[in-house]
């Protein structure tokens, strides 16, 4: 690892504070997991010698050996199927599917096998599997490298789904996912891999601070505000923070709620925020129809209908296949579109 140790210090609980990129933070979380639990295994396409196409697994094979960190043949269904069998034999697999669009060939193993094995076996076979899935768009990648599958996986009983938005969350949420005895789809926002922030690194396993004290399913207020809540996850959190900065120049004080967990969704956190601000705009990269924005919107309406001053707005990708590079900026929710939605909700 080549992370800069600038800004290194000690937090209140003795945990190390290190500035690093999200890609490095994920690497450190994998390193922590491999070190603390001999049952963890990291595998997938190109994760070994190469260190992953995004170098997220860089150095792990050298540190933990080819039995703990290994390359597989290029077959996503086989990778997840392998994880299911390993879990049935007491291992804690952390497979990587190289890109979002390549999760589709593994959907049978994810949905019909991994997500149901605990249920099917009446609790006899737990599936403590974390599927790492580099996700979402924004990097002008080829086709099948910019997909947002959260609604698909959130719809599947038995799965948990999480998408971090910054390095610190990436570190903590990944450890939380790995330590969970349920299968988790961990969606990494590729566009934020090089985002550099301070990360609170885990000390000893015994320190409960490893997940910041937040349980699985907890959202985070990324920016407090009074006039409307922007609900987002993954790379869109950063964009919403930018929108909030711009709006602040016009005296509009926006709250940004980073949902983090897309299943389970923090309904209480969502309701509390929107109940305060009385207005909500949901922002996601995935297409509009039957996207997770519909679920979020519905939850808000069910919980705080009487507090709402305006209908919940959705700013999303369009109902089209994810486009090639030059069209990407026109497909993804733009700052202007989000601002317009804020305006609509304020003027309703």
């Amino acid at each position: 690892m080549t992370e800069a140790l600038v800004g290194e210090g000690r937090g209140a609980n003795g945990a190390a504070l290190v500035e690093m990129t999200m890609q490095q933070a994920i690497n450190r979380a994998l390193d922590t997991a491999l070190r603390e639990d001999p049952a963890t295994l990291v595998f997938g396409e190109d994760v070994g010698r190469l260190g992953g196409v995004f170098r997220v697994t860089d150095g792990l094979q050298a540190a933990y050996g080819q039995n703990r960190v290994f390359d597989t043949p290029l077959a996503e269904s086989g990778i997840v199927g392998l994880a299911v069998g390993l879990a049935m034999n007491g291992w804690r697999p952390i497979p990587e599917l190289q890109f979002d669009g390549f999760a589709y060939p593994a959907v049978d193993q994810i949905v019909n096998q991994m997500a149901r094995m605990h249920y099917r076996s009446r609790g006899a076979a737990s599936m403590p599997i974390t599927v790492r899935l580099p996700s979402f768009g924004g990097i002008q990648a080829p086709e099948h490298h910019g997909e947002s599958l959260e609604a698909l996986f959130a719809h599947v009983p038995g799965l948990k789904v999480v998408a971090p938005s910054d390095p610190n969350d990436a570190y903590r949420l990944l450890l939380q996912s790995i330590r969970s005895d349920d299968p988790v789809i961990y969606m990494e926002p590729k566009a934020r891999y090089w985002d550099r922030r301070q990360v609170v690194l885990d000390g000893a396993r015994a320190q409960a601070a490893d997940t910041g004290g937040d349980p699985i399913g907890a959202s985070r207020i990324a920016r407090p505000g009074r006039h409307a809540t922007l609900v987002a996850w993954g790379a869109m959190v950063h964009r919403c923070l930018r929108v909030a900065e711009l709006a602040a120049e016009d005296g509009v004080d926006l709250e940004v709620l980073d949902l983090r967990w897309l299943k389970p969704i923090d309904t209480d956190g969502l309701a509390a925020s929107v109940s305060r601000t009385r207005r909500a705009v949901v922002v996601h990269e995935a297409p509009l129809t039957a996207g997770l924005g519909a679920e979020v919107s519905s939850l808000i309406t069910e919980r705080v209908f009487c507090d709402l001053a305006a209908p919940v707005q959705r700013v999303t990708g369009f109902d089209v296949p994810y486009p090639a590079g030059p069209l990407e900026p026109q497909y993804l929710p733009t700052i202007d579109r989000i601002l317009l939605a804020v305006q609509r909700t304020l003027e309703f």
Binding site: V80, G81, L86, N89, G90, Q109
Partner: peptide, 15 residues
């Protein structure tokens, strides 16, 4: 579906 599980289980045994 279960055929890859056998491979995973067996790999786990060897590991």
């Amino acid at each position: 579906g279960p055929v890859p599980h056998a491979v995973g289980w067996a790999l786990g045994e060897r590991l």
